[in-house]
């Protein structure tokens, strides 16, 4: 006879199922990136996955942790795919390998591995790369009107391929609009074929694909609505309140439907390990990221601000947690802060 504590039954959910579902939900977005932009995203995804699993296994071995047990949880895979979706597709191969290594090593295991990291590992790596290699991180985006075939892409990524590269890369719409609007009117800026009626060519379907994946996660209750809604809400609200003048500011449609907005709202900001916990806390956390994205995009030097916005709110998450505990059954009010003042 065994003596076990209750409950004696559990649901069938596991961490690896959670992580793998997350990866599956990323696939529409990743496919859209490959279709509309470049084979580079696929190559990046493969490179990142292999690197992530190898680095994870190596570090687990060094840390004397059960390698297979933790490899199976799929968290390294999620980090790898997020990076593959976020990094420029035509950057040299070592950039993605370096980035993934940084993510697993500095973003995750340095803090104690799965569940212990205060920051989103993929965003830690992204920020490190952006600060250290700004040129590669801003110029190797695939241009939407030109595309290299698979062979050419391989050449660019693995051999430099500078001759092929020219004409294939371009600024992202967020970057282009921000740079151009200081000289031109909105009308003149939008003449550029990278824009379309709503958002930007390529970027709009990509964001819609990520939105679709995100809605699947919501439907499966793997994430709750709080972070995506508050993030997109605050970003949209600020854009309407402050940046409604298209001749001076990036318009709302570009904020929501280009760059990494939907990826951030549904897949990056919702990383539970580094986010705030309570429902109310998540609302504040998401709204903070949305606001920071708008602020950095508008007045900062970085055209896409997701990584910094997420990292800054990661810092704030523990504080938010302390002041947003829900009111417990039978209590008159929620317990707030660091001291129990109820007694």
């Amino acid at each position: 006879m065994m003596t076990l504590s209750s409950p004696h039954t559990t649901g069938s959910n596991t961490v690896s199922r959670l992580m793998l579902t997350l990866c599956a939900a990323l696939i529409p977005g990743l496919l859209a990136l490959i279709v509309f932009f470049s084979w580079g995203y696929l190559i990046n995804a493969i490179l990142a996955t292999v690197t992530a699993l190898a680095v994870e296994a190596l570090i687990l071995k060094i840390r004397k942790r059960p390698v297979l047990f933790f490899l199976k949880d799929g968290s390294a895979l999620v980090t790898a795919l997020l990076l593959a979706c976020a990094l420029p597709p035509l950057a040299p191969w070592w950039l993605i390998v370096l980035g993934t290594t940084l993510a697993i090593l500095f973003g995750k295991h340095l803090f104690g591995g799965l569940g212990q990291n205060p920051f989103n590992p993929a965003m830690v790596a992204y920020a490190l790369l952006l600060v250290s290699l700004p040129l590669l991180m801003t110029t190797r985006w695939a241009a939407v009107d030109q595309s290299a075939d698979f062979g050419q892409t391989v050449t660019i990524i693995f051999q430099g391929g500078q001759t092929v590269l020219d004409g294939l890369t371009g600024a992202t719409p967020l970057d282009d609009y921000k740079q151009s609007i200081s000289r031109l009117t909105a009308e003149d800026v939008l003449v550029n074929p990278i824009y379309q009626t709503i958002g930007a060519v390529g970027w709009t379907p990509v964001n819609l694909a990520f939105l679709l994946g995100g809605l699947v996660l919501l439907g499966l209750r793997i994430i709750t609505w709080h972070i995506p809604v508050s993030l997109l809400g605050s970003l949209a609200l600020l854009s309407i309140l402050i940046g409604s003048d298209a001749d001076a500011f990036v318009p709302l449609s570009l904020h929501l439907l280009s760059g990494s907005t939907m990826l951030a709202a549904f897949f990056i900001a919702t990383d539970p390990v580094s986010a705030a916990t309570s429902n109310r806390g998540k609302l504040i956390y998401g709204a903070g990221i949305g606001a920071l994205i708008y602020i950095i995009r508008t007045w900062g030097n970085y055209p896409d601000a997701t990584a910094f916005a997420v990292l800054l709110m990661n810092f704030a998450a523990p504080l938010i947690d302390h002041y947003t505990r829900p009111r417990v059954y039978g209590h008159k009010a929620a317990v707030k802060g660091y001291k129990n003042e109820q007694d």
Binding site: D73, G115, I222, P272, N279, P326, Y329
Partner: peptide
């Protein structure tokens, strides 16, 4: 019988399941 537990990833499913609104 229970399988080996993994670290908490703070997914928050417990919070959504708690009938007395604990974390």
């Amino acid at each position: 019988p229970a399988i080996e537990d993994s670290p908490c990833i703070r997914c928050g499913l417990c919070e959504q399941a708690c009938p007395v609104d604990l974390l």
